[in-house]
Design a binder for these strands. Structure first.
Length: 342
DNA sequence: AATGCCTTCAACCGCGGGTGT
DNA sequence: CACACCCGCGGTTGAAGGCAT
C-alpha cells in the first residue's frame, strides 16, 4: 500500500538529513553528567559503599551525530550487539549503554521500517492495544520493523488526539466504541480497497506485458475491460470476506505467534476474523476489557456494519451509533488522514 | 515576513526484573 | 542472601519543523 498518509511525513532521507545536519544541537550540553546505567536511576549503595567522586567519563547527550552513528554501526557489525555498557566503552562512544541500545534499536537497526503506518498496521495497533494496553514492546513484536517507541508515539500523537477530539479518554468506553464501530471497520475497508487496487494494478501490468509480448497493443482496451471485470469479481470476493473467514476454525489466530509474518494478507484475514467471524479470541480476550461485543446479538450488529458499511440492524445500536457517528464523524475523520489514502 | 502555536518523534528518565558473583 | 550490574519497558521531555494568523 502506498504510504501517502501524511503530506508532511518525514522520510528516512529527511531523518538522515536531520541527523546529518543536526540543526538541532548535535550534542546537548554536557554540563550535567549522565548517570551511568539505569538512566540516572541511582541505586542505593549497600552499606559502606561510599560515593567516591569517581571520575566519570564525560558523556554526551542529545541527538546523535553521523560520526557516532557510524561508530556504533561499524562496531556492531564487527562485534554484534548486546552488553551495551561494554559496547559503548569499547566502541569509544561517549554515550551510556542505554543510549547506544536505544539508538540502535530505534533508528540504526537495518530492519527498522520507516514511514507512515499502513492501514494494516494501524488496525493491528488498535486491536492489540485493546487487548494488551500500553504493552508497547509486546505490541511491537507483532509489527515487524516497528519499534515500541514508534508505536507508542503513534498512539500518543494520533490515537489520543482523536480521543481528545471526542472529549473522552483514549481508554474510555466511548472511545473504544468509536474505534470498534467506526475506525476499525474503516481501516478494514481501506485494506480491502488497497488489496483490490493492488490486484487490479497487477492485473493491468500482467496484461500489458502479455499484450506487448503478443504484439497486440491495439487490444489494450479489451484487456482493460477484462481486467475490470476481474476486478469486480475480486471486489465481490473481498466484500464476501465474511464467508471466506467464517469457515476459519482457528479460535485464537491472533493470539498465536503465527501472525508474526504481519503481512497485508494476514491483516486482512485478521480483520475479517475480528469483524466478521467474531472469533473466540475476541470474545474471550477483548470482551473482558469491555471492548468487544459480548453476545451474538452485538456481533451480528458489527457484522452488518462491517460488511455493508451501512446501518445497524439493531435499532438500539443503530440509533446510538448513528447519533454518535453523525456527531463526531466530521471532526473524527477530517483529522484522520487515512482518508487520503483512498 | 514575522511570530506564535501545534504536532511529531528522537532521546532521555525512572523503574522493575533478571543474572552473576 | 546481598549486592552490583545489566537489560528492557513505559512515561516524559524538548527541539525541529509545519501551520495558522
Amino acid at each position: 500500500m502506498a504510504a501517502t498518509q501524511q503530506s508532511r511525513s518525514r522520510s528516512s532521507a529527511a531523518a538522515a538529513a536531520k541527523a546529518a545536519a543536526c540543526s538541532r544541537p548535535a550534542v546537548a550540553p554536557v554540563d550535567e553528567a549522565v548517570d551511568e546505567e539505569h538512566g540516572g536511576h541511582r541505586r542505593q549503595q549497600g552499606g559502606g559503599a561510599q560515593e567516591e567522586p569517581e571520575k566519570k567519563p564525560e558523556l554526551r547527550r542529545g541527538p546523535w551525530t553521523v560520526d557516532e552513528d557510524l561508530t556504533l554501526v561499524n562496531y556492531i557489525a564487527d562485534n554484534g550487539e548486546g552488553r551495551w555498557n561494554n559496547l559503548a566503552r569499547a566502541a569509544g562512544l561517549k554515550r551510556t549503554g542505554k543510549s547506544c541500545r536505544l539508538r540502535w534499536l530505534n533508528y540504526l537497526r537495518p530492519d527498522v521500517k520507516r514511514g507512515n503506518f499502513s492501514a494494516d498496521e494501524q488496525l493491528l495497533i488498535l486491536d492489540l492495544h485493546t487487548r494488551w494496553g500500553n504493552r508497547w514492546s509486546k505490541i511491537a513484536q507483532h509489527l515487524p520493523g516497528r519499534t515500541d517507541n514508534e508505536i507508542k508515539n503513534y498512539w500518543r500523537t494520533r490515537v489520543q488526539k482523536h480521543a481528545k477530539q471526542l472529549n473522552c479518554d483514549a481508554n474510555s468506553k466511548r472511545f473504544k466504541d468509536a474505534m470498534r464501530y467506526l475506525w476499525m471497520p474503516h481501516l478494514v475497508d481501506i485494506d480491502i480497497a488497497a488489496a483490490a487496487a493492488d490486484d487490479h494494478h497487477l492485473r493491468l501490468l500482467h496484461h500489458q506485458q502479455q499484450a506487448a509480448a503478443a504484439g497486440a497493443g491495439n487490444d489494450l482496451a479489451g484487456g482493460y475491460a477484462a481486467a475490470g471485470a476481474a476486478d469486480v469479481q475480486l471486489h465481490a470476493l473481498s466484500s464476501g470476506m465474511a464467508a471466506m473467514t467464517t469457515t476459519t476454525s482457528s479460535s485464537d489466530s491472533l493470539a498465536s505467534e503465527s501472525y508474526e509474518d504481519g503481512g497485508g494478507l494476514f491483516a486482512n484475514v485478521l480483520a475479517g476474523e475480528m469483524l466478521m467471524n467474531g472469533g473466540d479470541w475476541a470474545a474471550q480476550e477483548a470482551n473482558h476489557q469491555g471492548l468487544w461485543p459480548s453476545s451474538d446479538h452485538d456481533l451480528s450488529a458489527v457484522q452488518v456494519q462491517a460488511t455493508t458499511g451501512g446501518q445497524f440492524q439493531d435499532p438500539e445500536l443503530s440509533g446510538w451509533v448513528q447519533g454518535f457517528s453523525e456527531s463526531i464523524t466530521d471532526n473524527f475523520w477530517a483529522l484522520e488522514e487515512i482518508w487520503k489514502m483512498q
